[in-house]
Design a protein around this nucleic acid. Structure first.
Lengths: 126, 126
DNA sequence: CCCTCGTATGCGTTAAGGCGAATATATCCC
DNA sequence: GGGATATATTCGCCTTAACGCATACGAGGG
């Protein structure tokens, strides 16, 4: 039986990358695990919108999620083959050099800082 | 006046790459200038379909076309910035290693060969 | 001028995806 | 259990795009 030609299934990965909101999310998640509320804060867009884009990225196998209490933490997932890995690396590299993306990352630092402080406060109050 | 954040416009490029037919076309065009009839032959798909995907790639600035008599020759276009260039390079590199894509390139060689022979025949008949 | 060949485009249908608004789910705390 | 918070999902609307089919356009040859 002749094997069906697969054409390296890069296309679905590119579809996942073909949206500015998702690129911004990946740019933030690439560094470390990030929770949804921080992504909403940084992008300044509605929570359902962010959540839907995260679901898309998860379906595409680009990111994965981990629940911690009420919070969902998203992180990068390991690509399934070398070609996809190369594309992801190159893409994130490109985002790293973009000014607007850099601004997003800076903002995330601040937001996470605030979050951490409030978490600490919670612990102190407790 | 504050400059609007652009987010490096990689998204439209990814949209152009998010289709198997277009990836196959790019894989063939990447090597050299190719005319539409050869692309139709190699992919074995309808001429309007191929033509529409080529038009998409042209709108996206990924390829350009040149008319020579009745024939249209398509070639790669230079990317507009470093990030896009890097993505294109990585993508074509990935396609180069894919078996199905390699088969397409082999088939193109044969098809072009036949075309050349028939062109020569035309000249001889003349 | 008409015919043919190579290529592009219009049309109608269908499917996918993006958005806001509303609602559902899940967890925690009281 | 009930309320509050974090997140996911559904719905309806709209746009884009993929496809097959038919047709238009453009160039060359009789």
């Amino acid at each position: 039986m002749k094997r069906k030609a697969t054409f390296c299934d890069l296309a679905p990965l590119f579809a996942a990358l073909a949206d500015v909101t998702r690129l911004r999310l990946l740019n933030l998640i690439a560094g470390r695990e990030v929770c949804v509320c921080n992504l909403v804060d940084v992008l300044g867009q509605s929570q359902p919108k962010i959540s839907r884009h995260l679901a898309y990225l998860r379906r595409a196998g680009v990111v994965s999620a981990r629940r911690e209490g009420k919070w969902m933490h998203y992180r990068m997932e390991e690509p399934k083959n070398a070609a996809m890995a190369a594309v992801m690396t190159t893409t994130l590299e490109g985002l790293k050099k973009d000014d607007a993306m850099r601004a997003d990352r800076e903002k995330l630092k601040k937001v996470c800082c605030v979050t951490d402080v409030s978490r600490d406060l919670v612990k102190i109050v407790q």
